[in-house]
Design a protein around this nucleic acid. Structure first.
Lengths: 356, 356
DNA sequence: TGGTCGCATGGAAACGATTACATCGACATG
DNA sequence: CATGTCGATGTAATCGTTTCCATGCGACCA
């Protein structure tokens, strides 16, 4: 494969000149420039990015570690991230953690070894050594959707949607439909988003004077199988819940699978709602009530936050965003909080206020 | 960040020795080895993969270019590919072509520029210059799911599932249910898989003495919106079809969206079937009849074929697989053809033979 | 005419690893 | 004792770029 030397020889100039042309530096006579350029495409020359990165110490690459590629929410996020990155001249390498800490850490390390310029991560549950090391190494890093408390306190920005208001809305919706025994399926124990959702759920229930017995808290892990298990547990209870709220869409899928084998109907036998809206929810039997996040915007904002961090060494002052005033307290500078909203469908029963 | 020199200094040896230890070469005394190793983790040293790759001319990285990340079939494929690659010590960089030739070519070039060791691609429609150049450059390359005829003739292996038998089965199924006016929504015009599916569909119809009028061939592009358009066209026909076969799952989604706005019911007003089975098809209203591919195995076989190519410079003789004898003729050595099968559900109407 | 300046260009030192080859001491052999 | 072998280690070239600095040259000015 042709190298810069070959181009230089072919154009009758030095490698320095070729490099200058390629990088658009000024101070190259127009005719030499064209001579170089034509040598470049006669030889089909493509610069070796490895060598380039080695020398310049930047790869123009972002790393994105997501928790689960099979989750449509994350693929949509990944796509938005890639779009935003590409438009800024960066490429993205995706690592799929599959909700496993060890796999996540593997990817974080691999990405750092590749000398990516910045890291976007939606961390899996648990205390990640690799993530702590990454933060300590000083690489620009931004959390998206989920985060790790300790690191946020050390200044890592978070780009996320606050689902609390929407969860409260959901509980109101269920209550209005006459449902009283409400259950929830959580994500992994230390998952920040899951905790936020559970907490919002619990306090909304309290507002309505409803209890949240332990048995109505299904321990899930954001993956399909755990939704099945939780549903199966719920319905072997002497008094099963009247409504189930799955804190992500895959667990909602699991619930449906389990209900199907148990011969139970939604919403007749039980109401169902999920966090994260996906296109299929419109066409399931019945269409599923869900809380939608502004996924694309999350992706774009995350890339913006990260590139700011990379270019300025610190987040840009007004972050361009509209952080909710209420909680700007706890977050690192550069953080962005958007909001999620409820989309009521038939899976919780009929409601005169349902539009679609 | 610490380099190999720092480690050498810290351990009181030369960089060569450090390198030997790190690469597990023999001929290093046990005590020097331990001295080096402890220097390594005292300094938290991680080798710079850029420098390493530059020198060794291999990156232990595979590129995977898929047509659409939002398509669950491809994310499942990507996941299988990543698993297989990781277990062989490779990492994978995914490029999402979003069904656009220019985007696909962008990714192919970017991957090549990164000096990946091998390329797995499920090409988008059309004649791709970048792909031709890649093949010409001699990089190990394998097509998965879709392919480009010209390059296959030049020896690029293809790992795929043959859907023709399943399509025939589908037509039989529809016929048995009394359906006669059958329509199809194709992928992009030059898409190999789409063509295969359309062709199989057409010849099955002929077998049953059914016509396939032009108006019953909806031109799609494997994305949701085109499914909507095609459905809308079909149902503005004086005599709309009784059944629609979408050649991928996203277009089936589009059809459902359109039917919903038009107030038509499946299977009452029209039957629906799709290529590619996904978990949600079990829970849609009604559950959708689909042709399932052995997605995971496709991914694993593709990686196996590619690594064979990389390690041997040519495909391993018996390819480990079970190529269908019928068509082993046209395919390059190393190709693998698995088979797809029909999963009948209620979206085409009741059939006494339906199991689930 | 001679000095200065600026512009276009070239030479060569990095970047951080791998690896062919040289070196060096210990030991065995004749 | 001279020589050869072997095992452990070091030296330095190399991969393909970017970039600092030097150089040559024409123009300009005094």
């Amino acid at each position: 494969m042709a190298g810069i030397k070959d181009v230089a020889a072919h154009a009758g100039v030095s490698v320095a000149t070729v490099s200058r042309v390629l990088n658009g530096h000024s101070g190259v006579r127009a005719d030499t420039r064209t001579r170089v350029l034509s040598a470049v495409d006669e030889l089909r020359y493509r610069p070796n990015t490895l060598a380039r990165s080695l020398r310049t110490d930047q790869t123009r690459t972002l790393g994105l570690v997501i928790s689960d590629v099979l989750n449509p929410f994350f693929t949509e996020l990944a796509r938005a991230v890639e779009d935003a990155a590409r438009s800024r001249g960066y490429s993205v390498i995706i690592g799929n953690a599959d909700e496993q800490l060890t796999l996540q850490d593997h990817h974080v390390r691999t990405l750092l070894d590749r000398r990516i310029d910045g890291l976007l991560v939606s961390p899996a549950d648990g205390d990640s050594l690799a993530l702590r090391e990454a933060a300590a190494s000083g690489i620009p890093m931004v959390f998206v959707d989920r985060w790790v408390d300790g690191l946020v306190r050390q200044g890592v920005p978070v780009v996320r949607a606050d689902g609390r208001a929407a969860v409260r809305e959901l509980v109101a919706h269920l209550y209005r439909l006459g449902l009283r025994r409400l259950a929830i399926i959580t994500g992994p124990v230390a998952s920040t988003t899951s905790n936020e959702r559970v907490h919002a759920f619990r306090s909304a229930l309290r507002e309505y004077g409803l209890p949240l017995p332990e048995a109505y808290i299904g321990q899930g892990d954001f993956q399909t199988a755990s939704g099945r298990r939780a549903a199966s547990d719920f319905f072997s209870l002497p008094e099963p819940p009247e409504a189930v709220f799955a804190t992500d869409n895959l667990m909602a899928l699991g619930v449906m699978e389990q209900l199907r084998v148990m011969g139970l109907r939604v919403p007749g036998d039980v109401a169902l709602a999920a966090f994260d809206d996906i296109p299929w929810f419109l066409h399931t039997d019945p269409p599923i009530t869900a809380i939608a996040q502004p996924t694309q915007e999350l992706g774009h904002r995350a890339v913006a936050a990260l590139t700011d961090l990379m270019e300025w060494g610190h987040p840009r002052s007004p972050s361009g965003g509209t952080p909710l005033p209420t909680d700007s307290g706890g977050w690192s500078a550069g953080s962005v909080t958007l909001s999620a909203h409820l989309i009521a469908r038939r899976s919780c029963g009929e409601d005169e206020r349902i539009r679609r």
